[in-house]
């Protein structure tokens, strides 16, 4: 297992390297330099000041060198300075990261809590009316735009005082109840579409597993129905659901960006949007880099969870 983790961790390096290339060079494609943009908001600079600014903005060197310097900086946690406020980017990111992470995690938990039981129930009553309804419901869930759902929630529930608390973000560790109250609807808006994906996968996977010989063996042993379904079948049926969860984690991370905007939550997504509206490229680069890294790490975690859940993976590791 240890070796597996190390190998997977090492495999992240080239991917993240590629991500950094894209993030750096795509921004370079934008017509006009960062310096010109910065100057657009400032008063005229003297030639001496220009030289100094060029050095600060790194426009005195060839692009590959600049990339390497930038890469070195972000590896040290230095994401540069905002073009608009002149403040360091990293503290802003760090202060907004917890909210976005929490939002993503809550929506994942909600999606699994809704999707898995519905999927199981649906598979056990295959082709019944309830199954029919949940299949249609699943497709409908896939078709709902998260931000529209969020807007409807705001519209409906803000009529009831306290259902969607307004005001500043409260950390879970300061006031768990207030925190959950604040994030419940946003998480639901992000998670419902994903719950539909999870439900469909769970259903199909359960239907497949329930046909397996080992389920017959379990029944022939005289096991009670719950232990056949929730132990013997689910332990196998959950495996593809784990994979799809990792694969679709981007849906949740991306969803957080839009939903933060709708619910006016001060997370990474709002920071990114603000930066885009303001053309504040260092912040955009930082946010994209951080979210992509998170996504890659989440995928790694899902792979590890999968390896823990499926003993056949570990053997492959030993053999190779």
């Amino acid at each position: 297992m240890g070796r597996y983790v190390v190998r997977r961790l090492l495999s992240l390096i080239p991917v993240l390297f590629g991500v950094s290339l894209i993030v750096f060079f795509l921004v370079r494609l934008i017509p006009g330099t960062a310096l010109e943009m910065y100057l657009g908001t400032q008063v005229e600079a003297t030639p001496e000041q220009m030289e100094e600014l060029k050095r600060i903005f790194g426009e005195d060197k060839p692009v590959p060198i600049l990339y390497l310097e930038w890469l070195g900086d972000i590896l040290r946690g230095d994401f540069g300075y905002s073009l608009r406020t002149g403040r360091m980017v990293l503290p802003d990111i760090l202060s907004r990261l917890p909210l976005s992470l929490e939002l993503t995690l809550f929506s994942l938990i909600l999606a699994l809590l809704i999707g898995i039981p519905l999927g199981i129930a649906s598979s056990l009553r295959q082709n019944s009316f309830g199954d029919f309804v949940s299949r249609i419901g699943g497709l409908l869930g896939l078709s709902l735009p998260q931000f529209w759902l969020a807007a409807l929630m705001v519209m409906v529930f803000s009529r009831f005082r306290g259902w969607i608390p307004m005001g500043n973000y409260v950390s879970f560790f300061d006031s768990p109840l207030q925190n959950i109250k604040m994030l419940f609807f946003p998480s639901l808006a992000i998670g419902i579409g994903f719950a539909a994906v999870v439900m469909r996968y769970t259903r199909n996977s359960m239907l497949e597993v329930l046909q397996m010989d080992y389920i017959r063996t379990a029944k022939a042993k005289g096991l009670k129905k719950p232990s056949v379904i929730y132990f013997h079948a689910l332990k196998n049926a959950i495996l593809p659901v784990i994979t799809v969860t990792g694969f679709n984690a981007g849906y949740l991370l991306g969803g957080a960006i839009v939903i933060e905007e709708v619910f006016a939550l001060p997370g990474m997504g709002r920071l990114a949007l603000y930066a885009i509206y303001q053309r504040d490229y260092p912040i955009i680069q930082a946010v994209v880099m951080v979210i992509a890294t998170l996504f890659v790490v989440v995928n790694l975690i899902t792979d590890l969870v999968y390896a823990l859940a499926d003993p056949r993976i570990r053997l492959d590791d030993v053999v190779r």
Partner: peptide, 14 residues
């Protein structure tokens, strides 16, 4: 693989 490391919506926004 590298393009896959960006959540769809984030990549589109970027």
């Amino acid at each position: 693989d590298v393009l896959f490391s960006f959540p769809s919506l984030l990549l589109a926004i970027f």
